[in-house]
């Protein structure tokens, strides 16, 4: 696996290189936009981490050039890593074809997680399997396995579990859940959702999966346990 880091601050570039080396990747470093542009012509990368405020050639131009050239090199996933946090910059970056956008300063674990996700998406597309601790959710076979054994869940419960798993660590509103399960018959009201959640919690008790109730907002599945 080969990545290109485009960053003009040597201290940050060094930190990024060390961190991503630990993930077992080969890292190339460009300290200005022009050399990054040059390297992107001759080499196909699995991921490009791109700063915006670069000497010689701006990050937006590097990105636009890359996407314009196209080909296998031109489709490399790009993560913009920048100090500019305005909405316009974000939108412009994503419009130009960036795959993700992270503002400085950032938490290293978050950057690593996003890099992993981008590389995975670039290689295999979206994974059909969601792994959450001892729980494994097969989005194609539509079943949930606990320690390899299938859990007894209804179609609606499965849909709700899938939504919660995909949004682990984030609040999911009752409306969102209702939207997900309305494919299975008529749209359930808020009370029905509460009933389904109650059942889901019971069935997941042994899996050490906690579905929290967030007052006035909805539900939250804790972030997956580390490891």
């Amino acid at each position: 696996m080969r990545m290109l880091i485009v960053e003009d601050d040597p201290l940050l570039a060094d930190g990024l290189t060390r961190s991503l080396n630990q993930m077992g990747t080969v890292i190339d470093l460009a300290t200005d936009g022009a050399s990054a542009d040059h390297m992107l012509v001759s080499q196909t990368y699995d991921l490009v981490i791109l700063d915006l405020g670069l000497p010689k050639l701006g990050g937006f131009e590097v990105l636009a050039n890359l996407r314009r050239r196209g080909g296998s090199a031109g489709t490399a996933p790009v993560l913009i890593l920048t100090a500019r946090d305005s909405l316009e910059d974000r939108v412009k970056g994503l419009d130009l074809g960036a795959d993700d956008y992270l503002t400085k300063p950032f938490d290293l674990p978050e950057l690593e997680a996003r890099v992993r996700a981008l590389v995975r998406r670039g290689k295999f597309g979206t994974s059909p399997q969601i792994v959450y601790g001892r729980l494994r959710f097969d989005t194609i076979g539509r079943r949930a396995l606990l320690d390899g054994r299938p859990l007894e869940l209804s179609a609606r419960e499965l849909s709700m579990l899938e939504t919660l798993l995909l949004n682990a660590g984030r609040v999911v509103s009752k409306e969102q859940l209702a939207e997900q399960v309305k494919g299975w018959g008529e749209e359930p009201g808020p009370n029905a959702i509460e009933v389904y959640i109650h059942r889901l919690r019971k069935k997941l008790e042994s899996a050490q999966v906690t579905v929290r109730t967030v007052r006035g907002l909805g539900y939250l599945l804790d972030k997956p346990p580390a490891g």
Binding site: G169, R170, V171, V214, R215, L217, D222, K223
Partner: peptide, 21 residues
């Protein structure tokens, strides 16, 4: 609702019960 939802994970980290009305 939207902004509060975004802060819920941080509240959980700090052991606080953040909700909305």
């Amino acid at each position: 609702r939207k902004v509060t939802s975004e802060w819920v994970p941080k509240a959980i980290d700090r052991g606080l019960d953040l909700g909305a009305a």
